[in-house]
Every structure is written in C-alpha cells, then in structure tokens.
Simulated assay, not measured.
Amino acid sequence: MDIAAVNALPYEDFVNIFGNVVEKCPVITAAVWTGRPFASLSALEAAINEFIDALPESGKEGILRCHPDLAGRDLHSGTLTQESREEQARAGMDALNTEEASRMARLNDEYKKRFGFPFVVCARMSDKANILRQLSQRCQNERAVERARGIDEVKKICRLRLQGLVLTDAPNKL
C-alpha cells in the first residue's frame, strides 16, 4: 500500500496492520496514528522513532523485553510472531547445530542476567555467525550502552518491517 492508503486507514486497521512493526508493542502504533497524515514512509518511521525516544529509560527497556530470545524457546515452540519467525529463519537461527544452539542459549541467559532484557539485533541484517559474535561481544558492555544499542536495533527492525508494508514511492501530497 502507498502512504495515501496508510493515511486513510481507520484506527483499528492501522493498529492491526502496523501493530507489530515494533515487536509486540501495538501501543506505539496506536499512539502515532493520531499524527496522520504522514507525508511519507520516512515520516511514519520518524513518528515511531520519536515516540520511542521520548520514553523514559524504563519504557525503552520494556520495549526490549517484548523481544524474544534469538533461537530460543519461542522459536522452538512455534510461538514467535510471524515477523520474528521469518527474520530468525532468514538469519539461520532455526538451523543452529548442537554446539551453536548451546552457545546461543548460554549467551542469551548471560545477557539477560546482566542487563535484565533480551539481546536484540536486527536478524535480517545479519547471519548466525555474526549474531553469535555480537551477542558474545555485547555481553561485555555497560547497561546504558546496551539499552541504547538495543533500541537502535529495534529501530532497524521497525524500518525493515515498515518497508515490507508500505511502498516507498513519492511523498503524499498534503
């Protein structure tokens, strides 16, 4: 759909379509709906990013906590969102060998114990080897650094999910 069609969506449809561009956070898209009309896909993305940036640190951590562990229980039990399932599969998270799966589980646990939220990375922009390397390296960061890095990754995920839903054509004539 183009941005004009996005702007014409009733509230319920907008939230249903865009409610998971930030993983399991439809409240964000519900809040930005009032900012219509959006001049472009970039303006919609900017509105979402501004909402996230305005949150207190605890709210940003809440967004991070909505994300599943990579190659974790939700993947294996089939309870991931459709978007996360596709993104993790594309990065090879559903095809880890025994050693990789064990290392991923150990690092995910270490990361969550250290920071209080799961490791978030834009899986669509990575592969399993890079994800394992980043997870290992990022376990060494300070909490504030990881919170900011996680939110940057959330924004990358959001951008790619939005691009999958909205045509990136000429700006809307307001």
Rank of each mutant, 00 (worst) to 15 (best):
M1I: 02
D2L: 09
D2N: 15
D2I: 06
L9R: 12
P10G: 14
E12N: 14
D13L: 09
F14P: 00
F14G: 01
V15K: 14
N16R: 13
I17V: 04
F18R: 04
F18G: 01
N20R: 07
V21G: 05
V21W: 07
V22H: 07
E23N: 03
I28D: 08
A30Q: 15
A30H: 14
W33D: 06
W33V: 00
R36H: 10
P37G: 01
P37N: 03
F38L: 03
A39L: 01
A43W: 13
L44T: 10
L44G: 08
A47R: 10
N49R: 03
E50V: 00
F51T: 09
F51R: 11
I52V: 13
D53K: 09
D53Q: 08
L55Q: 15
L55N: 14
P56A: 13
S58H: 15
G59S: 11
K60H: 07
K60T: 08
E61V: 09
E61M: 11
G62S: 10
R65Q: 11
P68Q: 12
L70W: 14
L70D: 15
H76R: 02
S77H: 05
T79H: 14
T79A: 08
L80E: 09
T81P: 12
E83I: 04
R85D: 02
E86I: 07
E86N: 05
E87T: 05
E87D: 09
Q88Y: 04
A91C: 13
G92T: 13
M93L: 14
D94R: 11
A95W: 01
A95D: 05
A95Y: 03
E100D: 12
M104H: 05
A105N: 03
R106G: 07
L107P: 04
N108W: 08
D109M: 09
E110H: 12
Y111R: 01
K113I: 09
F115Y: 08
F115A: 08
P118K: 09
V120Q: 02
V120H: 08
C122P: 07
M125Q: 13
S126A: 14
D127A: 08
D127T: 05
K128M: 05
K128T: 06
A129C: 00
N130K: 14
I131Y: 10
I131N: 03
R133Q: 15
Q137D: 14
R138M: 06
R143E: 15
A144W: 04
A144G: 13
R147H: 10
A148P: 01
A148I: 02
A148D: 14
G150R: 13
V154Q: 05
K155F: 11
R159W: 00
L160G: 03
R161T: 02
R161W: 02
L162F: 10
Q163E: 15
Q163S: 12
Q163T: 11
L167I: 13
T168E: 12
L174E: 02
L174Q: 06
